[in-house]
Design a protein around this nucleic acid. Sequence first.
DNA 1: ACCTATTGAGCAATATAGTGCACAAAGAAA
DNA 2: TTTCTTTGTGCACTATATTGCTCAATAGGT
Lengths: 187, 187
Amino acid sequence: MHKENPQRASVLQHVSQNVRRLRHAADLSQTALSEKSGVSRRMLVAIEAGEKNVSLSTLDRVAEALDVAFSDLIQAPDVRDHSRINELAWAGEIVGSKAVLLAKATARREVELWEWRLEPGDRYCPDPDLEGWSEQLFVFEGSLTLVIGDQETVIEAGEFFMFASHQPHAYRNDGSAAVRFVRNVVI
Amino acid sequence: MHKENPQRASVLQHVSQNVRRLRHAADLSQTALSEKSGVSRRMLVAIEAGEKNVSLSTLDRVAEALDVAFSDLIQAPDVRDHSRINELAWAGEIVGSKAVLLAKATARREVELWEWRLEPGDRYCPDPDLEGWSEQLFVFEGSLTLVIGDQETVIEAGEFFMFASHQPHAYRNDGSAAVRFVRNVVI
DNA sequence: ACCTATTGAGCAATATAGTGCACAAAGAAA
DNA sequence: TTTCTTTGTGCACTATATTGCTCAATAGGT
């Protein structure tokens, strides 16, 4: 009649891993999370073991106590690959035509595509983004000096660079001509 | 002792709206969806009314029957803005330095950043993407002819364009010099 | 050794998700 | 009108999520 609970739903496995991971990230014990969320510790054990079929509102209380979005608890925990690829994906019939996939990122919420132009000697020092954000830069004219922490990287025209933008960083043009680049901000 | 069910969880409201919207989009009656998903019609009514606290596996069965991702059922239904912005967001101290936010998209799963180069006379005709995908193009050298359906658009160097890529489309270089552009694929 | 914090698990009680049935209201098409 | 489809609701029943209580096992720190 009813299913013998094969728990086919992969969502539950993700939840189990995510809750544990995020709870440790928040430096909370099961007891502490239980008090903060209002969900019994016994239930938290079951959730982290993946042996109970959690309801939405219960899971939402956990998400709120962990200070994360609900969707963060159901997403596959390891799908995020902010890997740099830079491979030739297509070559046209005429020599020189090409398509290069610079990077592929598993986005959760937002993407921002920016066009930038920085005159020689100019700079931009943004506030660091929150944890999880990353930026992808593609310089198509001039030369860009990227400062991350105390480390400086020069990105020439035609080059691509990607970094986690929660650390302090700055853009600077040390060259003699204007630098123009595309900036892709992703979370 | 227990709460008088204020159902504070906004997730449940989203679910209620999403299920109904997607069910209509799939052209299914409650009865049909019930048979396809294995969830009782009585429960579907409750879900769409937002008066029951659905469990993950039950909602996952609904998601599978609707042929959508689980996260599609819990997300706020109208948050997707693929709006073109193109506003000057920052101006440097030296005249000419600038940052232009070309576009901001609410991404759900993936982002792909591509660098392209197309020689004169060359073209690329990809298979149309699935519903929901969109592409953002920024041409920084040459001139690109974008064919969408039976409509042609010429994008000059320095210009930006965005379109839903589920419709048949093609890139073509009608100019006399190579065209180079950045292509951002988002869902 | 001891003490303490943390986690896992068993069990009984309770709250509620989920089912199946019956029936009514509304709308569309004959 | 009559028929059919779709949807909402009340109710009793079952399945199970959720709780609070136990106790055991493990790991660190003193």
